[in-house]
């Protein structure tokens, strides 16, 4: 519900921060889905599209909104490097607003390119079966595009 409220808020007011072409949440596409592309290309493509995640600014937070995950997260700039900016991020993953896990990671941004390396820890809870009994942890990466970025 937190995610839904935040999504409604940011959709009306927040600008687009980036689009994660490969999202770090739930982060299962590269590990679970991509190896299956030979056996079921259509389903794999659908899984990929469902994980594409527009991320919106919502005050001090950002809200990622994909079919597979809605994630509310805080992003803290750590340092400016010669070739980009490094930030830490921590967020709550939801499935259509139902909190199911967390996300912790580091992101690096240079011009229009956004990359991150994170750990995704989440339960298999769903709206149809809201039980948080089984958990999984995955290392994930994210690849995103930052709109309107100025190339120096």
């Amino acid at each position: 519900m937190i995610g839904l409220l935040a999504m409604v808020h940011c959709a009306s007011a927040g600008p687009l921060a980036r689009v994660e072409i490969v999202a770090d949440d739930p982060g299962t596409f590269l590990i679970h889905e991509l190896p299956m592309i030979g056996a079921r290309p259509g389903a794999t493509l659908l899984q990929g599209l469902a994980q594409v995640q527009p991320v919106w600014k919502a005050g001090p937070l950002t809200v990622g909104t994909s079919i597979a995950a809605i994630t509310v997260q805080g992003e803290l700039p750590l340092t400016t490097l010669a070739d980009g900016e490094l930030a830490g991020l921590a967020g709550i993953q939801t499935r259509l607003g139902l909190p199911v896990g967390t996300l912790l990671g580091l992101s690096w941004t240079r011009d229009a390119l956004w990359l991150d390396l994170a750990a995704s820890i989440r339960a298999d809870a769903s709206w149809a079966r809201p039980e948080w009994s089984t958990w999984s942890a995955l290392p994930t990466i994210g690849v995103g595009w930052v709109p309107g970025a100025r190339k120096d």
Partner: peptide
């Protein structure tokens, strides 16, 4: 994917 359908259920 969105959690509105659950196979365990």
């Amino acid at each position: 994917m969105s959690g509105t359908v659950d196979v365990v259920q």
